[in-house]
């Protein structure tokens, strides 16, 4: 007769934090010494992103470019990808500071110290790539408008933002770290980022689910509706940042704004956004944070 055993209890955020802290110590790296920065890169001569991940891929603007033009666009699109990730990590670092020591949970706080250290190094790394090879980090165009929150809503909102910036970016990191046809420095930065982000995503998912289960049942229906509407809009707005007309201009595309609008409306690009977002959207639906897949 087979013995029936109870399934193992799910790991708590405290247990998870202990495990992740250990992994962070084991995989500690030095942003100032571990990356071999080439003196220069060949813009237009080599790929910097996997072509299928370039934001205009499959659109008429892409079709109109020759191979040099496409490679050039892949460079400026990578600078945009690194810039938007850097800008996404800035408020994340700010918010993580607010989370430290706030829950009287030593294990979670210890992991947040690692999280912050790693995010700071990512910003150094992205900033260095953009400044060194493009001479700039693309500016972000988001404005923060003050808002009043229900109890726990600000923390839930914060971790939703964490997951969106990290999970969308991670899809790109995983694809590009494997792509031997792109510039080695691009592969290396994507590899380094993914190695840390894998831990951050596990942590963010667990903490967000716990926060949601703690607070959402006490919220008024209008708070729930408002948060879900905001989340759908925030995800869409985060995607729109991947289509930067300034990067298109730098790549030599004359009608940069039209190219952006066409890409946002193109079915192939919409399908790409849905594919990349799928795991994240499934998580939001499984936890009950979203009720249905948002339009992208």
């Amino acid at each position: 007769m087979n013995a029936i055993t109870a399934p193992p209890a799910p790991e708590t955020s405290t247990q998870l934090s202990t495990r992740l802290s250990r992994a962070s110590v084991k995989k500690l790296w030095n942003v100032y010494g571990d990356i071999a920065w080439p003196e220069s890169v060949d813009i237009g001569g080599e790929w910097f992103m996997t072509p299928e991940l370039v934001s205009l891929y499959g659109t008429p603007a892409w079709d109109a470019l020759d191979e040099t033009g496409r490679k050039r666009l892949s460079f400026y699109d990578l600078v945009n990808f690194f810039s938007l990730t850097l800008h996404g990590e800035r408020p994340l670092v700010q918010g993580l500071c607010n989370q430290m020591y706030a829950r009287q949970n030593a294990e979670v706080t210890e992991y947040i110290h690692h999280f912050l250290d790693e995010e700071n190094k990512h910003m150094v790394m992205f900033g260095e790539f953009c400044s060194r090879y493009a001479g700039k980090v693309y500016a972000q165009k988001k404005l923060v408008v003050p808002k009043t929150y229900a109890k726990g809503e600000e923390d839930v909102t914060f971790f939703i933002k964490v997951l969106i910036v990290e999970e969308l970016g991670d899809y790109y990191n995983v694809m590009m770290q494997r792509d031997a046809s792109i510039a080695p420095i691009s592969r290396e930065i994507n590899r380094i980022h993914h190695a840390d982000e894998a831990r951050h995503i596990i942590f963010g998912r667990r903490l967000l689910a716990e926060l949601w289960n703690e607070h959402a049942p006490k919220w008024q229906p209008e708070t729930l509706t408002g948060l879900r509407t905001w989340l759908a809009g925030y995800l869409k707005a985060s995607w729109n940042d991947f289509y930067n007309p300034t990067a298109y201009k730098d790549a030599g595309i004359a009608d940069a704004y039209d190219a952006r609008q066409a890409a946002l409306a193109a079915e192939c690009c919409r399908e790409h956004r849905r594919r990349v977002s799928r795991k994240l959207v499934d998580y939001f639906i499984d936890t009950g944070i979203l009720e249905a897949e948002p339009a992208l």
């Binding site: 165009k141 988001k142 404005l143 923060v144 408008v145 905001w230 809009g233 925030y234 869409k236 707005a237 729109n240 940042d241 007309p245 704004y257 952006r260």
Partner: peptide, 13 residues
Amino acid sequence: SSLDVVELVIFIE
């Protein structure tokens, strides 16, 4: 909404 501001700024540009 505040999320629309990015699109507004890009349209102005």
